[in-house]
Write a protein that binds this DNA or RNA. Structure first.
Lengths: 153, 153
DNA sequence: TATATTTGTATCGCATACGATATAATCTTA
DNA sequence: TAAGATTATATCGTATGCGATACAAATATA
């Protein structure tokens, strides 16, 4: 019973699980990030800055695979919240340098509890630690594969 | 060198790879879906309808894990493109029944080529078929785990 | 059976994503 | 070194996502 359109069935799609899992994960973060008054993408930018302190818009974009059309408005919102500062580079006036403010730095001490809370959400008898490690390994390969592919265009 | 904030490093986050992989995958679909004048979420709705023909908004939402606040505007756009029809149920006036139009049906014959094209994008020496199968298996468990968890609230 | 609760859609507001395009600064190169 | 190409951001328009809320229809229950 080889159906002509079987490849179009939702269950057989590789893409939909990624889409669904990504949205669900973001929703899991929801309540924790609300306490910090951050959206999920804003949290990702803060993660980059907590790790690297000073970054151009471009550098943040390279790490998160986002372009300025997404980042610029988002960064302006973080600036309004006084978590970061935006300043034109003096050596290259095209670049905008993003820095953490004191307030932005301070937020890290509150965010530090989040990862453990999230990991608890993922803990489950049906999924082993080993399985998650392997999963992470594969998804990182998928990311580099796809981003290389999109680069070429 | 156990760093105090190591768990906040992007590389150690479980969530970011899902977010990045999902967006990259959607981008891979871009050119193929553009030929059909569909966005990626619109394509997902069409997949559901090609498989099931008649569905309420709710049923579509259950399959895609989306609510009416996302689906209603999206479905109206598909209606404008004359791919679907929307009609209040006569047996339960709260429900809206979504049906494929002839045009919507016809589009399936053009969409059928997409999955193979996408699979080609994923083909790579660094990832085995076996690995993808395992990956799909795990991500489906993650989805059911997280959606159960979110259900409880 | 009248009232309370639940259910199914829809609306609103805000924050992404992202293609397309604009603009200024920097770099290349003839 | 002047013109053309490239680079780094920004702007604009459209389409999601999603929390909060509204509203009517259906169901449950006292």
């Amino acid at each position: 019973m080889e159906e002509q359109f079987a490849k179009l069935h939702l269950q057989n799609q590789l893409c939909f699980p990624l889409y669904a899992a990504s949205r669900l994960t973001t929703q899991i973060y929801g309540p924790f990030l609300k306490e910090l008054d951050l959206t999920y993408p804003q949290y990702l930018v803060m993660l980059v800055l907590w790790e690297h302190q000073v970054q151009t818009v471009n550098q943040i974009g390279n790490r998160l695979l986002l372009e300025s059309n997404t980042l610029t408005p988002l960064l302006k919102r973080l600036e309004q919240k006084k978590l970061i500062s935006r300043m034109r580079s003096e050596t290259d006036e095209r670049s905008v340098i993003i820095r953490l403010t004191d307030r932005g730095h301070l937020l890290q001490t509150r965010a530090v509890e989040i990862p453990d809370k999230i990991i608890n959400s993922f803990k489950d008898h049906s999924i082993t630690e080993q399985e998650i490690v392997l999963f992470m390994h594969t998804i990182k390969k998928v990311i580099s594969l796809l981003s290389n592919q999109l680069q070429m265009n």
